Amino acid sequence: MKKLLKIALLSSLPLLMFSCYYDEFPEVVEQEDVVIPPETIVSFADDIAPIFATYNCTQCHNTSGQNPDLTAGNAYASLLSGYVTPENSTSSKLYIQLADNGHRNVDANSIALIKKWIDDGAENN
Rank of each mutant, 00 (worst) to 15 (best):
M1W: 02
L4Q: 12
L4F: 02
K6T: 07
K6S: 07
S11V: 00
L13V: 04
L13P: 05
P14E: 08
P14G: 02
L15W: 08
L15A: 03
S19N: 01
Y21E: 02
Y22K: 08
E24A: 11
E24F: 06
V29K: 10
E30N: 06
E30R: 12
Q31I: 01
E32S: 13
E32N: 06
V34S: 04
V35T: 15
T40D: 04
T40L: 02
S43T: 11
D46S: 15
D46K: 12
P50F: 13
I51G: 10
F52S: 11
F52G: 10
N56A: 10
C57S: 14
C57H: 14
H61Q: 11
N62K: 09
G65V: 03
G65A: 07
Q66Y: 06
P68A: 07
P68M: 10
D69S: 07
T71A: 11
N74W: 06
N74D: 05
A75R: 03
A75G: 13
S78D: 10
S78L: 02
L79F: 03
L79I: 03
L80I: 09
S81Y: 08
G82S: 07
N88A: 10
S89I: 09
T90I: 02
S92V: 01
S92Q: 02
S92R: 07
K93D: 01
Y95V: 03
Y95W: 09
Y95K: 07
Y95I: 04
I96P: 09
Q97A: 10
Q97E: 14
L98F: 05
L98E: 04
A99W: 07
H103S: 07
H103E: 08
R104K: 12
N105H: 03
N105M: 11
A112Y: 10
A112P: 11
I114M: 13
K115A: 06
I118E: 15
D120S: 14
D120L: 05
A122H: 13
E123D: 13
N124A: 15
N125C: 12
